[in-house]
């Protein structure tokens, strides 16, 4: 099942740091540059705050595998580890409003 080009918003993440652990790769912060701090985008990239944990995980895995064809997100998701995807999903899932 391949989603049509660009029909699913290129996903990704937002803002700040995780509260429990100053360590890990800090990946959620890296997402804020494109997707806005606290998962609230002020531009054309999608906001991530509305997504729940499972959606973030499934989307990132689908971008990584190529099941969804976006633009830049496939190239970035291919650089993420399973552990990072899990942390990102947890982080942005917590921001769900």
């Amino acid at each position: 099942m391949k989603a049509a080009l660009l029909s699913i918003p290129a996903l990704f993440l937002a803002a700040a740091a995780n509260s429990d652990d100053i360590g890990f790769s800090g990946m959620p912060e890296m997402c804020a540059s494109c997707h806005g701090r606290d998962g609230a985008s002020s531009g054309s990239m999608p906001s991530l705050a509305p997504l729940d944990e499972e959606s973030v995980r499934l989307l990132l895995e689908a971008y990584r595998s190529g099941e969804i064809e976006g633009t830049i997100m496939n190239r970035i998701a291919r650089g993420l580890t399973d552990a990072e995807i899990a942390s990102l999903a947890e982080y942005f899932g917590e921001l769900e409003e």
């Binding site: 080009l5 540059s33 494109c34 997707h35 701090r37 985008s41 531009g43």
Partner: peptide
Amino acid sequence: APAEYRQAEAEYARGWFANITAE
């Protein structure tokens, strides 16, 4: 790539600028 891909990346370029400068 098709024109819609190039257009999407132009939109994303503006989105990138809006978000990274706001950050």
